[in-house]
Design a protein around this nucleic acid. Structure first.
Lengths: 136, 136
DNA sequence: GTATTGACTTGGACCTGGTCCATCGTAGGA
DNA sequence: TCCTACGATGGACCAGGTCCAAGTCAATAC
């Protein structure tokens, strides 16, 4: 994720300890943390970081397209740093575990014009539901 | 939706004025109301109905499989009475308008075993995003 | 190296959506 | 018509998130 820090700097982002820590916490594959989890992990590294800053920073990362928001349960939003590789999600209905998945085909092409109702369709999110190995 | 009332009675549901009003408010196609909107419309017909009752009743309808919960924006859940005809949703990114849509193909079949990570996959939700005619 | 300044951070108040619970009311069976 | 268990009520409470005035500091200019 150090290339993320580079990209952000290149965009004129003012680099602060808080922002660096939030970006570092989001590093990795299959990371889908809630804002509170990000706060907890960030606090472990930088105890005086505030909740508002975590929310601000996450919001900026989303606006910049570096991170996507995922809502799988109507409760806390989750933040997915894997924004440059399009993918969908597979969620365990029991324990909430989340995996990134890459289905075959192009779901956008599967929506015929007659089902678009004049909308300009730009994207699609798919959430597969099921039971993970531990829960089934 | 009077057949809904019949089905509920058949399942031993105790019929009260409040439950009847909530069920009636959810009648129709392309209805995607938030709990607060349901409460507002129910209050118009039955002024003394309480918020807790609306939440309770919506929860029961969901449990019974008569209504599905839809979360399109991480804010308020929406309640979709069109639960017996499987479908997905098309959402305007600007104004939040929602349409039911029926894409071609079978998205479940598009998730190969190698992308299932041992999950027992049982369903999928698709949310198409775009701009509605009024907003584009 | 220092001064400057506007962007960033802070903590606490506040908001929205939702849940819980003790108490009261009533649908529907006997 | 009476009884009673199930349902309704409203107000407290909770989680997740946003807002704001005041203080802090990264980056630029010198």
């Amino acid at each position: 994720m150090s290339d993320l820090l580079e990209r952000l700097r290149g965009r004129g982002w003012r680099m602060t300890a808080q922002r660096r820590v939030v970006a570092e916490v989001l590093d990795g594959e299959h990371v889908h943390l809630t804002a509170d989890e990000v706060l907890a992990r960030a606090t472990a590294r930088l105890p005086e970081i505030s909740r508002a800053t975590v929310y601000n920073t996450l919001g900026e990362l989303v606006t910049l397209g570096e991170v996507t928001e995922v809502t799988t349960d109507g409760r806390a939003k989750r933040y997915d740093p894997n924004a440059h590789r399009p993918h969908h999600h597979l969620v365990c209905s029991r324990c909430g575990a989340i995996r990134d998945v890459h289905p075959d085909g192009d779901p956008l092409a599967d929506l015929p014009a007659s089902e678009r109702f004049g909308f300009t369709v730009s994207g699609v999110e798919m959430t597969y539901r099921g039971l993970c190995p531990d829960c089934s």
